[in-house]
């Protein structure tokens, strides 16, 4: 049983928790947070690819043989930065949206648009 409790599986669970939030919450802020959770889960998953607990972080010239695979780590720094910027954009947009419509509910905005 315990061998299933790995960081990778935890990240998959996290991904689907985020997906649940996207599917079943109508609040835009919650959508933004949920998508972020999914993003983080994917990043967590990628970091743990090819990684074992006894490995060292890929820093400095020593112990090159015992280091963890550096490629996912490098890529995920980029992914984290992208995640932050995209979140910033969506929150900025949300503020504008909230000022115009006075609600943060996807459904209510549609009703106000079609009316």
């Amino acid at each position: 049983m315990l061998e299933y409790v790995t960081i990778q599986n935890a990240s998959l669970v996290l991904f689907f928790v985020g997906l649940y939030g996207v599917l079943f919450h109508r609040n835009i802020i919650r959508t933004i947070i949920s998508v972020n959770v999914m993003d983080v889960a994917a990043i967590l998953f990628l970091i743990t690819v090819n990684a074992r607990p006894d490995q060292l972080p890929p820093v400095g010239p020593e112990h090159a043989a015992r280091m963890v695979d550096p490629l996912p780590q490098a890529l995920m720094i980029t992914a984290i930065v992208i995640g932050i910027s995209v979140t910033a954009v969506s929150i900025t947009l949300f503020i504008g949206l909230f000022r115009k419509y006075g609600t943060s509910d996807w459904q209510k905005i549609i009703h106000r648009l079609t009316r």
Binding site: F15, V35, M38, D39, A42, I43, F45, L46
Partner: peptide
Amino acid sequence: AFFLLGIG
């Protein structure tokens, strides 16, 4: 987000 997990 799906794509990123797919990359993983």
